[in-house]
Design a binder for these strands. Structure first.
Length: 262
DNA sequence: ATGCCGGGTGGAACCCGA
C-alpha cells in the first residue's frame, strides 16, 4: 500500500490538482498539510467519490491538516498534546489509526511551524512544538506498533538537502537548534524513509514560487516520513512526485510517498 | 533579495509562508 504526504498550500486553490494527483498516484492514505480551510468548508465530495474517508483538522486562513484514507478510521486524534499550563490554537497535527492485516497502523499528518523570523516568538514556538512532538512520539513508540509521522517538518536535515546551504544559514529551517531537534526525534528510533533508501543528490520537495527557484532547481527537502521500527520493517520503496511542481497552479511542495508492505 | 510569488481575508492592503 501507498502512504503519501503533500503540503498543498490551500485546498480551495489546489482542489483540482489534488483530485488529479489522487487519480494518478492512487495513494491508500494521504496526509495533507496547509489546507487553509475550516472543517465545514473543506470540499469533500469529489475526494469521497474517489473512495476516500476524510478527516480534517482545520482553521481559518492558515495551517490545517487532513488525512485521506481508503481504509476506515478506527480512531482520530486532533492536535498535538500540550505540556502543562501551555496552549496551542494552531491546527498542525492529526493522527489516524487504521487496521492493516490484523494490526493497527498509526499515521500522523503534521505541519511543523516554520519558525521565521528567528528573533521573534515564532522560533521558540517551533522548538517547543518539536519538543512536544518528541515527547508524544516517545509515548507512541512505547506501544511498539507501526507508526508513520508524515508531513511538512520545515527542517532541512543536512546541507545536501538544499541546493545552496549558504542561502539557508541562520534560517529557522536550517538553524542548528532545528536540525538538532529533528535528529533527536530520529534518535528515538525512527527511520527517515527517503534518506534510508536513496542517496540521490538534489532530491527536494519544495521550490519557492519566487526568483525562478523551480527553473534553477533551487529546492529544499523539508517534507519527511518517519517510520517506527515496526513500520520501517515493512518499507519497500520511497518516491517523490516531482512532476506535480510543473503543473498549472502548482503547490510549492510536491508529494512524497512510501510503499508499505501490508 | 526579511517577500521577487502566491494564498487567504475581505473587499484595500496586509498577514503569512520558507
Amino acid at each position: 500500500m501507498k502512504i503519501a504526504t503533500w503540503n498543498i498550500n490551500g485546498i480551495k486553490a489546489r482542489h483540482d490538482n489534488v483530485i488529479a494527483w489522487l487519480k494518478e498516484a492512487n495513494p491508500d492514505i494521504a496526509c495533507l498539510q496547509e489546507i487553509k480551510s475550516v472543517d465545514e468548508a473543506f470540499p469533500r465530495s469529489e475526494i469521497e467519490a474517489l473512495g476516500y474517508n476524510l478527516e480534517t483538522h482545520g482553521q481559518k486562513g492558515f495551517n490545517g491538516v487532513a488525512l485521506l484514507s481508503k481504509l476506515p478510521f478506527d480512531e482520530v486524534n486532533r492536535g498535538l498534546p500540550v505540556l502543562d499550563g501551555d496552549a496551542d490554537d494552531q491546527a498542525r497535527f492529526i493522527e489516524g489509526v487504521f487496521t492493516v492485516g490484523d494490526k493497527p497502523l498509526r499515521v500522523v499528518s503534521l505541519y511543523l511551524p516554520n519558525g521565521n523570523p528567528v528573533d521573534t516568538e515564532k522560533f521558540p514556538y517551533k522548538l517547543s512544538w518539536m519538543a512536544r512532538l518528541e515527547a508524544w512520539a516517545r509515548d507512541r513508540l512505547a506501544l511498539e506498533e507501526p507508526l508513520i509521522l508524515a508531513g511538512d517538518y520545515n527542517v532541512i536535515p543536512e546541507p545536501e538537502d538544499c541546493h545552496d546551504p549558504k542561502e539557508w544559514e541562520g534560517d529557522a529551517l536550517f538553524r542548528p537548534e532545528s536540525r538538532a531537534a529533528f535528529r533527536s526525534l530520529l534518535n528515538l528510533g525512527f527511520t527517515e524513509a527517503l534518506r534510508n533508501t536513496t542517496d540521490a543528490p538534489e532530491t527536494y520537495t519544495f521550490w519557492d514560487y519566487q526568483a525562478g527557484a523551480w527553473q534553477k532547481n533551487n529546492g529544499i527537502r523539508i517534507d519527511h516520513l518517519l517510520l517506527s521500527p515496526e513500520a520501517a520493517n515493512r518499507l519497500s520503496g520511497v518516491s517523490v512526485d516531482k512532476h506535480t511542481r510543473a503543473w498549472e497552479k502548482p503547490s510549492d511542495h510536491v508529494p512524497v510517498w512510501v510503499e508499505y508492505a501490508a
